[in-house]
């Protein structure tokens, strides 16, 4: 008998005697919780996102299409970045004004190659206002999971309000579960020492979030 059979057999014996329940799953759970906390205008939802990102020490910037290239260039210069990683599908105008060397992500790049990069610029799949969260799904302008992990500085562009949802339930509806997903809420942090929060452990120690106005 395989271990699978053993474990499944134990489960069935443990549950034996319980009345059969054939309710379809969609109806089995009372989901009385709300889809969104409070009511906000689109603008207020974006403001809430900005506020909650900042609460966890992400640096939040706002700009429009005209100002984007300049803002990205300045964020990289302020950080003293010399080598900047750009994923496939990043709109070419985003890093257009960047002085630093642009490094394209290659499938055969080693971890050390990644470690030699100062900053990375990406887009995202969506952002959640209530929790101050950015979600990356390895789609266009986002690249592989590791490129937003190894470099010490991440500039992430969110189209707002287009990519902004209010709540977690709304976010999950829009995501494809089988894509590799990375949820980011502020820079990496730890509270392991005396419960004192320290930002910046293994992931990027600085997270710049750019809210790119895509209204109208």
């Amino acid at each position: 008998m395989s271990s699978k059979d053993i474990v499944l057999g134990r489960v069935r014996r443990a549950l034996a005697g319980a009345p059969a329940d054939t309710t379809p799953y969609e109806q089995a759970i009372a989901r009385a919780y709300v889809r969104e906390h409070g009511r906000r205008t689109t603008e207020q939802t974006v403001d809430l996102l900005a506020e909650h990102l900042a609460d966890y020490r992400a640096h939040v910037h706002r700009t429009d299409a005209a100002g984007l290239a300049g803002l990205i260039a300045r964020l990289l210069t302020d950080r003293g970045a010399r080598r900047v990683l750009v994923p496939a599908g990043l709109p070419p105008q985003w890093p257009a004004a960047v002085d630093a060397t642009r490094v394209e992500d290659r499938p055969d790049a080693t971890h050390d190659d990644l470690d030699s990069v100062d900053s990375v610029v990406t887009g995202c799949a969506l952002a959640i206002a209530e929790t101050g969260t950015i979600v990356l799904d390895a789609g266009p302008a986002q690249g592989r999971r590791r490129i937003t992990l190894v470099p010490d500085h991440h500039v992430c562009v969110i189209r707002a309000p287009g990519q902004v949802v209010a709540s977690l339930p709304q976010a999950l509806e829009r995501l494809v579960p089988t894509r590799p997903l990375t949820w980011i809420s502020g820079p990496s942090a730890t509270s392991d020492i005396e419960l004192q929060r320290v930002e910046g452990v293994h992931g990027p120690r600085r997270l710049d979030v750019v809210l790119l106005d895509d209204a109208g």
Binding site: P180, L181, T182, W183, I184, S185, G186
Partner: peptide
Amino acid sequence: AERMNPYTTMWTGTT
């Protein structure tokens, strides 16, 4: 005690 923890990873098999 956060609205959301800094990082969450979700993966399905291999990519």
